[in-house]
């Protein structure tokens, strides 16, 4: 049997984390293919509805990543994202979904290494959690 491969959607802010993922690329730092990245201008753009939609449509985990505090290109979008993701996690917990399926991270444009580490770690964690089955919950 093939090993279970979790599906991850990553929302990355354009200015820090997306550039960090680009740097992982230009530095040829490899990480698992499980993550598919969606670019947003700022982590503050990530509506909890995006996270829920991703889980509903088959993602096993969602990564939201923005600039470090104080470094958001729009001053404070990452504070808002941090708050919203915390709430989203609470909401997931109430629904019986493990909140660790959603992660909020700070990754700067120079942290290509860190991006690869975060993805690798997240994939391992999700492998342990196993596939997300929404039917079970309903």
């Amino acid at each position: 049997m093939d090993e279970y491969e979790p599906n991850i959607i990553g929302f990355l802010c354009n200015w820090c984390s997306y550039a960090g993922a680009d740097l992982a690329g230009t530095s040829r730092i490899s990480y698992p293919t499980n993550i598919k990245i969606i670019r947003v201008m700022c982590s503050g753009r990530v509506d909890p509805a995006f996270v829920l939609e991703a889980l509903k449509k088959g993602a096993d985990g969602v990564l939201v990543s923005g600039c470090h505090f104080g470094e958001c290109h729009y001053k404070s979008g990452n504070y808002k994202a941090n708050r919203r993701i915390k709430l989203t996690k609470k909401f997931l917990e109430e629904m019986g979904i493990n909140p660790n399926r959603v992660r909020f991270e700070f990754i700067s444009a120079s942290e290509g290494n860190r991006f690869a580490e975060v993805v690798t770690e997240f994939v391992d964690e999700l492998k342990e959690l196993g596939p997300l089955s929404l039917q079970l919950i309903q």
Binding site: R45, Y74, K80
Partner: peptide, 10 residues
């Protein structure tokens, strides 16, 4: 407006 989208998300 700088286009970050924080308002739209809320």
């Amino acid at each position: 407006c700088k286009g970050c989208g924080s308002c739209a998300a809320a």
